Amino acid sequence: QEELVKAFKALLKEEKFSSQGEIVAALQEQGFDNINQSKVSRMLTKFGAVRTRNAKMEMVYCLPAELGV
């Protein structure tokens, strides 16, 4: 569980995922086979993730800066 949270936060820091499906796929690539869209959705809510525009003006998920991840 701890490893999943770390990987999840690291992915969001990249600010390149525009959908929950993309986050699920990226986590599965890292070996988290039991991850699915509903789990990702709950984690996004739990950590207060928001959708914002990145440098390329794409809408992407990211974590609020005050979490200091």
Rank of each mutant, 00 (worst) to 15 (best):
V60R: 03
V5R: 07
V50F: 11
V69G: 15
K9L: 15
V24A: 09
A7I: 07
V40S: 01
E22M: 09
M59Y: 14
E22G: 09
N36I: 05
M59P: 04
I35R: 00
V50T: 10
I35P: 01
E15F: 06
P64Y: 05
A26S: 07
E2H: 10
A55D: 14
A26C: 03
A7H: 06
M43H: 01
G21N: 13
A25K: 12
S41F: 08
Q37I: 12
P64K: 05
L63P: 02
M59C: 03
A49E: 02
Y61Q: 02
A55S: 13
K13L: 12
A10G: 10
A49F: 04
G31D: 02
Q28R: 14
P64N: 05
C62Q: 08
K46G: 07
R42T: 13
G21H: 11
V69N: 15
S41V: 11
R51T: 07
R53D: 04
E66Q: 08
V50M: 09
V50L: 09
D33M: 12
A65F: 12
L67D: 15
A26T: 06
L63C: 11
A7V: 09
P64A: 05
G21A: 14
L27K: 00
A10E: 12
E14G: 06
G31N: 04
M57D: 15
G48C: 04
G21V: 13
L44S: 01
G68V: 07
A55T: 08
M57F: 12
V69F: 05
K13W: 08
G31M: 03
V5H: 14
G31I: 01
K16A: 10
R51H: 08
K16T: 08
A65G: 13
P64D: 04
M59G: 03
Q1C: 15
Q28P: 00
K39Y: 09
Q30A: 11
V24F: 06
L27W: 01
Q28I: 14
V50E: 07
T45K: 13
V69I: 09
L11R: 01
Q20T: 13
Q37P: 09
F47P: 00
Q37C: 05
K39H: 11
P64W: 04
K46D: 14
T45R: 14
F17Q: 03
V5K: 09
L44M: 06
M57E: 10
N36W: 04
F17D: 01
K39V: 13
L12P: 00
S41Q: 13
F32T: 00
E14W: 07
Q20Y: 09
V50G: 07
Q30S: 08
K13G: 11
K16E: 06
G31H: 04
M57Q: 13
L11C: 04
E2Q: 12
L44N: 00
G68P: 15
V5Y: 15
L12Y: 01
L63Q: 03
S18N: 07
A10V: 07
K46F: 14
S18L: 08
F8A: 01
L27R: 00
K39L: 14
L67P: 15
G48D: 05
A10P: 03
K13H: 08
E29Y: 10
F47I: 12
I23Y: 02
R53V: 15
E3T: 10
L4T: 03
K56L: 10
M59A: 04
C62L: 06
E14D: 07
T45Q: 12
Q28A: 10
Q30M: 12
Q30L: 14
K13F: 08
T52G: 09
L27G: 00
A25D: 09
V50W: 05
C62H: 07
F47H: 09
I23E: 01
C62K: 11
T45C: 05
E2S: 11
S19I: 05
R51M: 15
Q28T: 09
K9R: 09
G31W: 01
R42M: 15
M57V: 03
G48S: 05
F32Y: 08
P64E: 04
R51E: 04
Q30P: 02
E58S: 04
N34K: 12
E58D: 07
Q20V: 14
Q30I: 10
F47K: 01
E22Q: 15
F32D: 00
S38D: 14
V69H: 12
D33Q: 12
M59L: 14
L12A: 01
A55K: 13
N36K: 08
L44H: 01
A10F: 08
F47Q: 04
A10N: 10
E58I: 08
R53Y: 15
E22I: 03
A65K: 13
V60H: 02
L67K: 14
N36E: 07
V24S: 05
L11Y: 03
A55E: 15
C62T: 13
A65Y: 13
V40L: 05
E58P: 03
V5C: 15
K39T: 14
N54T: 04
A10K: 08
V60T: 03
L12Q: 00
T52P: 02
Q30N: 06
E14Q: 13
V24I: 08
R42N: 13
E14K: 07
A26M: 06
V50A: 07
T45W: 07
F47C: 03
G21L: 14
G48A: 04
K9W: 10
L44P: 00
Q30R: 09
E29Q: 12
K16F: 05
S38E: 12
E14Y: 06
S38N: 13
D33R: 12
E66V: 05
K56I: 05
F32Q: 01
Q20R: 14
L12C: 04
Q30K: 10
F47E: 05
K16P: 06
A55I: 08
K39W: 11
E15A: 14
V60Q: 02
A10C: 07
R42D: 14
L27A: 00
L44E: 01
D33W: 12
V5S: 09
V69D: 15
R53W: 11
V40C: 02
V69C: 07
R53H: 15
G48V: 02
Q37D: 14
V60S: 02
K16Y: 04
R42G: 12
K46R: 11
